[in-house]
Design a protein around this nucleic acid. Structure first.
Lengths: 158, 158
DNA sequence: TATTGTTATACTCTATAACTATA
DNA sequence: TATAGTTATAGAGTATAACAATA
């Protein structure tokens, strides 16, 4: 197997959209929680980091502020997220999950994971290990980072 | 690293959307060709399989017929694809790339691949090999297949 | 003046349902 | 009657630009 950056990029470009299609389709199919991928990721981030600001979420998910604002608006309308203003800096939002939000996240996470897991059950342990390793390699490469972290990483890499 | 189907599914669910974001963003950034991911995939499929029908493309990309119809409509309007009726079965479309379509596909493919490759250049050959292997494992698992092929696979798997 | 967030606007993606044309 | 595709309609995701409120 070729290992040039170009060949690897080509593989990713071929396969990742296909996997993504399946994830979307399966999330849509679970009418219980019925979350889109961005909604799901937003809930997951707020769950990890309670009282995150809108900017925090937008940056981490990799969306613009207006896009994130709209997504959060929808989640608030569905009572999955609460939006409070920060006590001392009243420009900031403090986002948190409601009980319903936590349930929805849990339900969707498990249902989607179960569907994907079913698709993966036909593989060997060795194959799943390879996939897991690849994901762990890809994660930091494509995870958006704050400006500070980016600078730090650049400096470290020199 | 855990190798259960569930753990593997969780990894994919964490990482694939992040990679996808980057792919979309980079495709948008190349104003030369300016293709969305579905447009790109549609062009790529028609390039591989000239005179494909709309149903062929829809099934392979994993979209409904109306969705695919709309995407193709846009590509035809931009003169990247031609749409002719089949000689003997006049219900069928015969889709093909124009010269402009081939150029756009080539341009977009190379620009996006180059950007991804740049992100991957910091990895070791060994790491890229792992990614390549993982993609080759995932490809058949998530590639939509025709009904016949699905049946055949089910039978073989028994 | 800089930062945080929202509103306005516009486009693409995507689905379901209803329809047309052809076989 | 069944198949190939289009049209109608609706909603989500996304961006840029312009704006409002707060620091």
């Amino acid at each position: 197997m070729p290992t040039s950056p170009d060949a690897c990029a080509q593989e990713i470009l071929d396969v990742v959209p296909v996997v993504m299609r399946t994830i979307r389709a399966e999330m849509r199919r679970h009418r219980t929680a019925d979350l889109s991928v961005p909604q799901f990721r937003t809930l997951a981030f707020i769950d990890r980091q309670t009282d995150a600001s809108l900017s925090d979420v937008a940056e981490h998910i990799g969306l613009t502020l207006p896009s994130m604002s709209k997504i959060v608006e929808g989640l608030v309308a569905r009572k999955l997220v609460t939006r409070q203003t920060h006590a001392t800096d009243r420009r900031r939002m403090m986002l948190a999950l409601t009980a319903r939000g936590q349930t929805a996240l849990q339900t969707s996470r498990e249902a989607t994971r179960a569907c994907l897991a079913e698709d993966l059950a036909g593989l060997t342990e060795r194959q799943r290990e390879t996939i897991g390793q690849a994901m762990e390699i890809l994660r930091p490469v494509f995870t958006p980072q704050g400006e500070v972290e980016k600078q730090v990483r650049k400096i470290i890499e020199r």
